[in-house]
């Protein structure tokens, strides 16, 4: 798709993958952080990781296995929490531990058996080994996420404000939550081969937290978060190729540096906040 800009095929594929994954994840990151469901994103990411390792062990497509595993997790979260009479947070804690245990078990077993030579890429990602179909898949899920937010913006914003108020306003919150969970699951499963199970969470949270420092409204966050994520990911990719660095870990570090800078530099939001407080006291 971007061959007219980047003649080198490998760099072009990596750039496309990082661009589509970072934009899709960054839009979902706004939902995840503002709805305070970051532990769901965290658990789903590790669920995808566990699914992919099982898939690799069984010799089936790791992306499909990751999608099935993430969908399964998204489906059982709510019913399991109700059935076990535990808070959703505790349920997520249990599931996260279980998913990590499954992933590490199969990863270690494959190492012992001397199979699954690409297992390390599930941990740390390998953006240069993607197939064209996987890049198209990323583009498709990115478009779906953006369309979902655009079409259901009023429902999403009310749910972010207060779920009970959204229900009273007549918004069907349960289907919306499940739709979001499925999109997170799909995005996570498709991004896993690029950035790996351990770093995925950076893409699902950090862009929104950076945007949060500069934006006062949800609409601004929805625009700024993917723009920031795209710029950081593209910079990370190009610098990594130039200096022969691992792409995903370097990009993740860049996210962290930008986040630290955004916290340290006084933003418009912080200034506005202070002014509003002064006005209220007066």
């Amino acid at each position: 798709m971007l061959e007219f800009l980047i003649p080198n095929n490998m760099i072009c594929h990596a750039t496309e993958a990082m661009l589509f994954a970072s934009i899709g994840c960054a839009v979902l990151a706004v939902l995840i952080t503002q709805m305070k469901i970051s532990s769901i994103g965290f658990t789903t990411a590790h669920g995808a990781f566990a699914g992919a390792t099982i898939g690799m062990f069984l010799g089936v497509d790791t992306t499909i296995a990751a999608i099935i595993s993430s969908f399964f997790l998204a489906c059982i979260l709510g019913p399991l929490s109700e059935k076990s009479r535990m808070s959703i947070d505790t349920t997520l804690g249990v599931l996260f531990g279980s998913m990590m245990a499954i992933a590490i078990f199969f990863y270690a077993w494959m190492q012992q058996l001397g199979i699954g030579s690409g297992a390390a890429s599930l941990l740390f990602g390998s953006v240069i080994s993607l197939y064209r179909e996987e890049i198209y898949g990323l583009l498709a899920i990115m478009v779906i996420v953006i369309l979902f937010v655009a079409v259901f913006y009023k429902e999403i914003s009310t749910m972010i404000f207060n779920r009970k108020i959204a229900e009273i306003a007549g918004i069907q919150t349960k289907p919306m939550i499940y739709a979001m969970l499925f999109m997170i699951a799909l995005m996570v499963a498709l991004t896993l081969p690029i950035v790996g199970g351990l770093l995925l969470y950076v893409w699902l949270v950090t862009p929104a937290t950076i945007a949060c420092q500069f934006c006062g409204t949800l609409k601004q966050m929805m625009i700024v978060s993917p723009v920031i994520a795209a710029i950081i990911s593209l910079c990370g990719t190009f610098i990594s190729f130039t200096y022969n660095l691992p792409i995903a870990p370097f990009s993740a570090m860049l996210f962290t540096v930008v986040f630290a800078a955004s916290v340290l530099i006084p933003s418009k939001r912080q200034i506005t906040n202070t002014n509003e407080r002064v006005e209220m006291k007066v």
């Binding site: 503002q34 009023k154 429902e155 914003s157 009310t158 972010i160 404000f161 207060n162 009970k164 108020i165 959204a166 009273i168 306003a169 007549g170 918004i171 949060c212 934006c215 006062g216 409204t217 949800l218 601004q220 966050m221 906040n273």
Partner: peptide
């Protein structure tokens, strides 16, 4: 039906203005 709930607790960084919150009343 309108329903003014009890025990609301809004984060200081809730990204909505008063006008947006009122508009949400119309969304349903």
């Amino acid at each position: 039906l309108g329903y003014v709930i009890q025990n609301f607790d809004f984060d200081p960084y809730t990204p909505f203005t008063v006008e947006e919150v009122l508009l949400m009343g119309r969304y349903g």
